[in-house]
Design a protein around this nucleic acid. Structure first.
Lengths: 246, 246
DNA sequence: GCAAAAGTGTTGGAAATACACCCATGT
DNA sequence: ACATGGGTGTATTTCCAACACTTTTGC
């Protein structure tokens, strides 16, 4: 893979051992994954942060991350962080971007693959308290350790965009949810207010919501219907191109 | 960054040297970048490929890539590939995704950050011929070396999506272009036919095209006006959210 | 009965689509 | 003169935004 610095064509065939030694001589780069874990609670979008245990950044908050083992797949590494920290198995996880600025980590050259994760906070409230972990309102996330502020912002932006074009949001809600909860979620993520009737119209027109026949309970007002998202139907009907628009 | 495999809170503070040794002990992972370089020629979308010089994949085509030096930024590494291969300085370059399957490379654990690049083929036709490089019609790209077929498809899909939402396409055209060229570009990338009048209406309504006052020359029919894209105006006016739609 | 949110339709404007004719140039 | 694509306008439809009242429950 390493080639001459001029523009001459490359004619020689490289053997496996040549490549291997190249790889070994050059791999002074470490690889990590960082997870931006979003949750939705009290009608606010939250992100799960941990107190940095790194000397230069003591008492700053940082994302949950870890180095990647050589025998570990990237997704697997991210997944393991999720499992270790939240105890959750079945999480939404999406690779977002890789950050590789030369001096992003004081310990040396560490490049980090950032993942965005969406979890339903109701399933793991127990583990958080005993830890250095804390859910932060996304509106109050500032001054994270390392380049984590930048990573957070990129992932947040990606979430805002993707939630409008793909049915991700349901990962942040219970399996059965009311339309009010769904709208609150969208309003929290996009930081907007929407018209309730038009919001309903839009989702009913998509025709991906299944009426479970159940209702909310323990609400101090008229209970709403509970719905599930019909992923199967979505997969069959999802649209390809939406048209030029910028 | 490496933490216990159980769920206990992490209380100890790590010093720089501890981290450094962790980094060194674990960095058996090499990092590369691969560029999916698109061009537009003869009304077809093309991708620039090179004959693999790697033993296991002799005579298969592959993307242009290289290992990343420890003192080299990711974007810089991708940029250097572009410069070395095409002689171009001023290229559109966008990180797309990182590929890290354990066995994606036979020489060991190599993870690769994929970049999508758009270039104007008219500016560098000379360098290609003398090389093992070749422009392939995207419709005939099959059976690339390594996992490059997958990388190509992800980058192509990303391009198809992004060209509809962002003014990227102009990087594939000369600075001054006719509306016919622009429409041909969109039709090639999205593999569709569009109505000419509505296409014009859409772009004129955006109001980001500058009439240069010049006309096409050497065309065997009525010459069309030549336009430039007004990036400054776009930057000021670009929209944020387009609404929920999936 | 009161507070709080659920549930429901209509209307006007904007944007997208479909569609057909005349014009300018090179050959 | 003719072939080729440039350039333009209108009618229709579809989608989106704005907007108010009645209903159901808990307290």
């Amino acid at each position: 893979m390493i080639r001459e610095m001029d523009d001459a064509p490359v004619q020689n065939v490289k053997t496996l051992s040549v490549i291997q030694s190249e790889v070994e001589s050059i791999n002074k780069i470490a690889l990590s994954v960082d997870c931006v874990i979003f949750g939705f609670d009290e009608n606010k979008l939250k992100v799960l942060l941990i107190r940095s245990d790194f000397k230069d950044y003591l008492d700053r908050w940082s994302l949950l991350g870890d180095l990647v083992n050589p025998q570990e797949d990237l997704d697997e590494a991210a997944y393991n962080i999720l499992k270790k920290r939240t105890g959750l198995n079945d999480v939404y996880l999406e690779q977002v971007q890789t950050f590789g600025a030369i001096n992003r980590h004081p310990a040396g050259r560490v490049i980090s693959v950032a993942f965005c994760s969406l979890i339903n906070v109701q399933h793991h409230k127990l583990k958080i308290l005993a830890n250095e972990l804390h859910w932060h309102d996304v509106k109050n996330v500032t001054d994270l350790a390392f380049d984590h502020q930048q990573i957070f912002e990129v992932c947040f932006g990606r979430l805002q965009k993707r939630i409008q074009e793909h049915p991700l949001g349901f990962n942040l809600l219970p399996k059965k949810f009311s339309l009010r909860e769904l709208q609150n979620l969208y309003e929290a993520i996009l930081d907007t207010k929407m018209d309730r009737r038009n919001f309903r119209k839009k989702f009913f027109a998509m025709d991906f919501l299944i009426d479970t026949g159940e209702m909310e309970t323990d609400v101090p007002h008229r209970p709403g219907k509970l719905y599930k998202f019909n992923y199967d139907k979505y997969e069959k009907k999802k649209k390809k191109w939406s048209g030029i628009d910028f």
